[in-house]
Amino acid sequence: KELVLALYDYQEKSPREVTMKKGDILTLLNSTNKDWWKVEVNGRQGAVPAAYVKKL
C-alpha cells in the first residue's frame, strides 16, 4: 500500500473528508482525482486536498 505525508494541518469540512495533522502518515487509497485524494487515517476514510500531502 502507498503512504503519503501530511504537509499541513487540514480540518474536515464535510463528512466525506478527514482531518489530518502536519506530519501524519496516511494510507493512500485513491489518487485519480488531481485535486482530492482518498486516504485512510486513524481508521477513517475520506478525502484530503492533494496539494496538502506528498507521496512517500
Results as ranks from 00 to 15, higher is better:
Leu56Lys: 03
Leu7Tyr: 03
Val39Met: 01
Val41Cys: 11
Met20His: 00
Arg44His: 07
Leu28Pro: 00
Thr27Leu: 14
Leu56Val: 10
Tyr10Gln: 00
Ala6Gln: 00
Val53Trp: 02
Thr19Glu: 03
Leu29Cys: 07
Tyr10His: 03
Leu7Cys: 12
Tyr8Cys: 15
Leu7Gly: 01
Val18Leu: 14
Lys1Cys: 15
Arg44Asn: 06
Pro15Val: 10
Pro49Cys: 06
Asp24Met: 14
Met20Asn: 00
Asn42Gly: 12
Lys34Cys: 12
Leu29Ile: 14
Ala50Pro: 06
Asp35Tyr: 15
Asp24Arg: 03
Lys38Arg: 14
Ile25Cys: 08
Ser14Ala: 08
Glu40His: 05
Asn33Met: 08
Arg16Tyr: 14
Leu26Arg: 01
Ala6Asp: 00
Gly43Ile: 03
Gly23Glu: 01
Glu17Asn: 06
Tyr8Arg: 15
Arg16Ala: 13
Gly23Gln: 02
Glu17Gln: 11
Glu2Arg: 13
Leu26Cys: 11
Lys55Cys: 11
Gly46Thr: 04
Gly46Ile: 09
Thr19Arg: 06
Trp37Ala: 04
Thr27Gly: 05
Met20Tyr: 02
Asn33Ser: 10
Leu28Met: 03
Ala50Lys: 07
Leu26Pro: 01
Val41Lys: 15
Asn33Pro: 06
Leu3Val: 09
Arg44Tyr: 06
Asp35His: 14
Arg44Ala: 06
Asp24His: 04
Val39Arg: 01
Asp24Ala: 08
Gln11Phe: 14
Glu40Cys: 12
Lys38Glu: 15
Glu17Ala: 07
Lys1Ala: 12
Lys34Tyr: 08
Gly43Met: 05
Ala51Trp: 11
Lys21Ala: 09
Val48Glu: 01
Asp24Val: 04
Asn33Trp: 07
Asp24Leu: 05
Thr19Ile: 04
Met20Pro: 00
Val4Ala: 13
Glu2Ser: 12
Tyr52His: 06
Leu29Arg: 04
Leu28Gly: 01
Asn30Tyr: 08
Val53Pro: 01
Ser14Leu: 07
Asp24Phe: 06
Met20Trp: 03
Ala6Cys: 13
Glu12Gln: 14
Lys38His: 15
Asn42Ala: 10
Ile25Phe: 06
Glu12Val: 07
Gly46Val: 09
Thr32Leu: 11
Arg16Asp: 15
Lys38Leu: 15
Val48Tyr: 00
Lys22Thr: 07
Ser14Asp: 10
